[in-house]
């Protein structure tokens, strides 16, 4: 087959909603885009462990501690599933780590914000995991098989994350004055960054059209953002919290909530590295990786020694 007919075959599979598998021929752009998107997603999961990891040792009850620990551990699992999916495209996990540690790779900007109080564990679960789920559920049907299968597993595990976050917020909002204050403060700080999680407005998001065709993306940034606003306004009402945006208003005509202007210059700055915690996050990951090197090397050295001894025994 010529490249042309390979391309035709590929387009045909995409149009018929058939999944692409690792050994199938695929256009270079498709491979590159996927590697970028999947590894960014994996990095987000791993970096995302840090802000919540902060509070494991300070959780206010043993039950909350166990739940939080299991949740942060799940995020490690998500990172692992996604790195594995990216590896089927011909890039190693080590290489992806290099890209992260050298600042070449991006990850979700939300994790560059600090977790200042216990209520942030509630707000993150509720809003950040909530936004993530909204982004991710459509990806369970994405065109690349290993990615779609990883996402099915991720989404299955993700559903408890949002619930535990909402439960924390609910407990706070039914608690004392100071607890309600903690909840409102966390909501105020995480609301806008959560809206930014859906990415720049469609007008400024050049990849969208191609990505939608490849089913790497199934809805546009603005569509998902609107959906998120609509459901969150209702949930905030249940919590008795005030929306951190005075411009939130039901729009009868659109059948959606209108909301205020997002501070996109803040968004682009956080992406560029100017967020409150960018440096600490990368530094923490790099430290873990560098300090783990001798451990990983030791395991390999030991495995090699064991293998050598086994073949000696066999030869004898």
């Amino acid at each position: 087959m010529s490249v042309h007919s390979f391309q035709e075959h590929f387009d045909n599979l995409i149009d018929r909603d058939v999944t692409i598998e690792p050994k199938d021929w695929m256009p270079d752009d498709y491979r590159k885009t996927l590697i970028r998107q999947i590894s960014q997603h994996a990095h987000s999961e791993i970096i995302g462990m840090l802000p919540e990891g902060n509070w494991i040792t300070r959780a206010p009850s043993l039950r909350r501690k166990a739940v939080l620990l299991a949740k942060v551990q799940d995020e490690a699992g998500h990172g692992l599933y996604l790195y594995s999916a990216a590896e089927t495209l011909g890039i190693s996990r080590d290489e992806m780590y290099n890209q992260l540690h050298t600042g070449k790779a991006k990850y979700s900007s939300i994790f560059n914000y600090p977790t200042l109080t216990w209520a942030d564990m509630g707000a993150i679960g509720w809003l950040v995991d909530g936004a993530a789920i909204m982004n991710q559920v459509p990806l369970c049907r994405t065109s690349y098989g290993p990615y779609a299968r990883a996402m099915v597993r991720v989404c299955k595990e993700e559903s408890f994350h949002q619930r535990q976050g909402f439960e924390i917020m609910l407990t706070l909002s039914k608690g004392t004055d100071i607890q309600r204050k903690l909840a409102q403060d966390a909501f105020n700080r995480w609301w806008w960054p959560s809206l930014m999680m859906f990415g720049p407005p469609d007008a400024e998001s050049p990849n969208t059209e191609q990505s939608v065709r490849w089913r790497i993306k199934r809805f546009t940034n603005d569509e998902l953002r609107q959906k998120f606003v609509d459901v969150t306004v209702e949930q905030a009402r249940v919590l008795g919290l005030e929306m951190p945006d005075k411009d939130i208003k039901w729009n009868e005509e659109r059948g959606h909530y209108d909301f205020g202007t997002i501070n996109w210059s803040e968004f682009y700055n956080v992406v560029k590295g100017n967020g409150p915690c960018n440096k600490q996050r990368i530094e923490a990951r790099r430290k873990a990786w560098d300090e783990g090197k001798w451990v990983r090397d030791a395991a390999m050295a030991h495995a090699a020694k064991r293998k050598a001894r086994q073949s000696e025994v066999k030869a004898a």
Partner: peptide, 28 residues
């Protein structure tokens, strides 16, 4: 870049979800 000179090899994992069923690919 501080990589291990040799990355730990990649493995495919197959899991039997309950007695009597086949092992199924779970991930790597």
């Amino acid at each position: 870049l501080n990589n291990s000179k040799n990355e730990w090899p990649l493995w495919e994992v197959f899991i039997r979800s309950k007695a009597g069923l086949d092992h199924k690919h779970a991930g790597s």
